[in-house]
Write a protein that binds this DNA or RNA. Structure first.
Length: 875
RNA sequence: GGGGGAUUAGCUCAGUUGGUUCAGAGCGCCUGCCUUACAAGCAGGAUGUCGGCGGUUCGAAUCCGUCAUUCCCCA
């Protein structure tokens, strides 16, 4: 059967993935080998694969596949995250479409719907990862709400509470009025928006017609004002000291206080203080013992404190109150103004600072080991520069608000038994809670009296345990698996979640395992489109990864996302990169086609093939050492580029051309065997990047026993590099390129054989002459004592090369070329000599550098002599 | 406003302690080729005041200062 001209990836991909699964190559159990472990950053359980996942998971798969070949017990743990806010929002939306309101359901009913949704849509993303070739240990698939996992989350909550690290308190939180939950600082996106600055005047209490004017962007919060604040140093307002003001519309009387917090330059210098609705005002209020007037309901409408605006949305009130203030003569003027407003990352609702009773983790001390061990390099960041960002955050770490007003997630194990603010206990189960409550209350408390906290924990409060809990390290401490797999090796993730997730995993690692969770963190960049925009669903600028795979093959797409994506740099993605990847797989495919088509006979091995084999052996080992080094430094895309060039340029363009027999000529068995060996080595090196085609050709190129699969083959070992052969080849290569140039410049077809004469002036390495003859398509290679006239010529290593070409040669053009080269060489010599004549250079530069300069000088001198002689002889 | 990056070819990026012809790679571009594995290919080629200015040095893409542009994080 004819081997197709182009590689057809889809069939091979399906076949080999199924084969690998069947053989259990992805599955890991502890044994006496060294463990190499990666835990996947768990995607949202209801998510679908996007380009960010593609990049992230391809890198992980490359690392895990290489580790497997290095003989390590490679274990890549997959799984998903319950993603409380996002998932709950989706379930609520789906129920709404069915005409069901969340508020009409009990918690249990809602959770039933949520789990149904999760079972239906959950794990789609994991199936998509299989298409990419991800070699995860699917038997270990974890979910942050698995029973065992949930148990560890509750254990940790109880434990931290007992240690005094978790407390309940009133704090100003970022309230999402749409999702009806608090969100963490990190989930708030600050954006600049055009808004208005309203100048509103307040009457001074007890005066007839004395006023002060404040500037605010949120006039609706006037109804919650508790004070006016001025800077005590502000000369303009000394007459206001000790006075009171009357709030417009509500006509409440509020004090005028002084605090140097007020910026005298901003607005009017008079600040209205609304402690319930602004973080800074809240702090001011606490400091000055001001009343806190909360005028909002949880959904962003005004409550009864909002007087006649009761029940209206905050933005509608802003419009209406502007008119009322104007009509009643309070509104002095409005100005256009640009300010930054916080939006919810999940719902895009404008965040409302809101006072509420929440659970917090006190982070200061917990964070210490996590900071130290990154700064001292026990945990390495790639690239290293992210340490700076990390340090800055950890130095200024704030307490972590971990309660969320949702149902989907881990319900907070706090149990209330009375109406007092301290009438609660923290316990994993109701039974334990009952006992604790009985002690705390000093009376018998029954289970029915207990009411569990309605809120759930922040999703990150479960995912920070990921590297521990996927091995049951908390519910079954010291078990065989946690001992074997923890600490894991490498984590691959996005810098955006350095604080949400990475820092907290490190904190949890030291707190609960007394050890780091992973040794290296590889930060990927953001995948952007051609215009530099972040790829997102809302912009619709993200290609569907599965469609890309169908078009270019998984191997092609894997290469496409990795080829220009250094760690920490954004990836400006364009599908042309996948095309490049696909072309690469096709290139390998055709190399295989070539090698497989040769007719093998017991004939003499050509000299040129012997040299070619010597050379490629040296070249391969030289490059392999470089590739290994790049891997060690996590320079994955550079490693890929090195491999790309090794395969395309060195193996295909040079090696295969050197050994390729003439048309319909047979090949000798020694050369074909060596070539197949090389091919195998190359397949091994590309296997982490393009596993499917590697496996496919591995099985085509030689007959394999059952279980002889490349995925578990041994990574090549670096052998000694024959540097002398590499050096000889470099000179031969230069000659070949010069010959090709002569052809090109004189329009001599490749088929036409040419003669080459060499005038030896200097040491000459003739070991690659046979290769030069073959690659240059020469009929003759001869050494000559004299220069050849009427010939194209070039100089390599001070030796003169001549290709006679009858009478059609253009003497003038040839002379011009020589003159140009002469000028360049003279200029070069001049700069070298200037250096050598500089006493300070001679005194300051190391010997090695001086020797190099001298060598350059002598080479340039002899080249000039040759060029001048040629020019004079060409008259 | 505070902190951290970045700026090298048309694009995306390498460039280790200042010193080999150090100004590089891939893509793109230009030229010529349907040469017998591959036109998803082959062979050649061009491209840069290393963001600006100043300084240190025998020598600076690399070190220092400063300005500019830009991205990220925090307030």
């Amino acid at each position: 059967m004819e081997t197709p001209k182009t590689y057809e990836p889809l069939k091979a991909e399906e076949k080999w993935y199924a084969h690998w699964m069947e053989k259990g190559y992805f599955h890991s159990v502890p044994d006496d080998r060294e463990a190499y472990t990666i835990v996947i950053p768990p995607p949202n359980v209801t998510g679908v694969l996007h380009m960010g996942h593609m990049l992230n998971n391809t890198i992980q798969d490359v690392l895990i596949r290489r580790a497997r070949m290095l003989g390590k017990n490679a274990c890549w743990v997959p799984g998903t995250d319950h993603a409380s806010i996002a998932t709950e929002a989706k379930v609520v939306q789906k129920l709404r479409q069915e005409g069901i309101k969340k508020s009409d359901l009990t918690r249990d009913e809602f959770l039933k719907h949520a789990f149904e949704w999760k079972d239906k849509h959950g794990g789609i993303i994991l199936e998509q990862l299989k298409k990419l070739g991800a070699s995860c240990d699917w038997e270990r698939t974890s979910f942050t709400m698995d029973p065992g996992y949930s148990e560890s989350v509750l254990d940790v909550f109880v434990d931290l509470y007992k240690k005094g690290r978790i407390y309940r308190g009133v704090r100003m939180v970022n309230w999402d009025p749409e999702a009806l939950t608090a969100v963490s600082d990190e989930e708030v996106l600050h954006k600049e928006v055009n808004s208005k600055l309203f100048y509103v005047r307040y009457k001074i209490a007890g005066s007839d017609d004395q006023w002060l004017t404040i500037a605010t962007t949120r006039p609706e919060t006037i109804l919650g004002d508790s004070a006016i604040c001025i800077n005590p140093n502000d000369k303009r307002f000394t007459h206001l000291h000790g006075k009171q003001a009357i709030v417009p519309i509500s006509n409440r009387i509020i004090p005028i206080i002084q605090d140097d917090y007020v910026d005298m330059e901003f607005g009017t210098g008079c600040l209205k203080v609304t402690p319930a609705h602004d973080t800074n005002d809240y702090d001011l209020g606490k400091k000055h013992n001001l009343e806190t007037i909360d005028i909002f309901n949880d959904n962003g409408t005004l409550n009864e404190k909002g007087l006649h605006y009761d029940g209206l949305d905050r933005f509608e009130v802003r419009k209406q109150i502007e008119k009322e203030l104007y009509d009643k003569g309070y509104l002095v003027k409005t100005e256009d103004h640009i300010n930054k407003i916080g939006f919810s990352e999940r719902t895009n609702a404008v965040i409302e600072p809101k006072l509420s009773l929440q659970w917090f983790v006190d982070m200061k001390e917990l964070a210490q080991p996590a900071l130290e061990n990154v700064m001292n390099g026990n945990i390495k960041f790639h690239p290293d520069k992210f340490k700076n960002t990390y340090k800055h955050w950890m130095d200024n770490i704030k307490d972590w608000c971990i309660s969320r007003q949702l149902w989907w997630g881990h319900q907070i194990p706090a149990w209330y038994f009375g109406s007092g603010s301290e009438d609660y206990v923290v316990a994993k189960t109701a039974d334990e809670a009952m006992q604790l409550a009985t002690v705390k209350a000093g009376r018998a408390i029954s289970i029915s009296e207990l009411k569990q906290d309605e809120d759930v924990l922040d999703t990150w409060f479960s995912s920070w345990l990921w590297p521990i809990s996927v091995f049951d390290g908390l519910t079954n401490p010291g078990n065989e698996e946690i001992k074997y797999y923890y600490p894991t090796n490498d984590l691959v993730t996005a810098p955006e979640i350095m604080f949400f997730w990475v820092a907290r995993m490190i904190i949890a690692g030291y707190e609960y395992m007394g050890d780091l969770p992973f040794k290296n963190v590889y930060y990927t960049g953001i995948v952007r489109d051609k215009l530099g925009r972040k790829m997102s669903k809302s912009l619709g600028n993200s290609p569907d990864p599965i469609e890309l795979i169908e078009k270019y093959g998984a191997d092609g797409v894997r290469m496409g996302v990795l080829i220009s994506s250094p760690a920490g740099n954004d990836l400006p993605f364009d599908s042309s990169q996948c095309e490049q990847g696909r072309n690469f797989t096709n290139k390998i495919w055709n190399a295989y086609r070539l090698v497989s088509a040769w007719d093998v006979r017991e004939i003499e091995q050509p000299k040129s093939s012997i040299k070619a084999i010597e050379w490629f052996d040296a070249k391969f080992n030289q490059e392999l050492a470089i590739i290994n080094d790049l891997f060690d430094k996590f320079r994955i895309s550079e490693a890929l580029m090195a491999i790309y060039k090794l395969v395309w340029d060195d193996f295909c363009s040079w090696y295969l051309e050197m050994i390729k027999p003439g048309y319909e000529q047979p090949i000798d068995s020694k050369t074909i065997e060596a070539t197949k060996d090389f091919f195998e080595q190359i397949l091994k090196v590309i296997q982490p990047f393009t596993p499917f085609i590697a496996e496919e050709i591995w099985h085509l190129i030689r007959t394999r026993n059952d279980g002889d699969d490349i995925i578990i083959a041994e990574w090549p070992k670096v052998k000694a590099v024959n540097q002398a052969v590499l050096d000889s080849f470099t000179k031969g290569e230069e000659v070949i390129i010069n010959i090709r140039n002569v052809r090109k410049q004189n329009n001599i077809a490749n088929k036409v054989k040419m003669d080459l004469f060499i005038k030896k002036n200097n040491e000459i390495d003739s070991s690659f002459d046979s290769v030069i003859v073959k690659m240059g398509n020469l009929s003759l290679l001869e050494y000559s004592e004299t220069a050849i006239s009427n010939a194209n010529s070039f100089i390599v290593n001070s030796n003169e090369y001549y290709i006679p070409f009858g009478d059609s040669i253009d003497i003038e053009a040839e002379k011009a070329k020589l003159k140009e080269e002469l000028e360049y060489t003279k200029g070069f010599l001049n700069s070298v000599q200037k250096k050598l004549q500089n006493e300070k250079f001679m005194a300051g530069a190391p010997d090695q550098v001086v020797v190099m300069e001298r060598k350059k000088e002598s080479e340039a001198l002899s080249k000039i002599a040759i060029l001048e002689e040629k020019l004079t002889s060409m008259v």
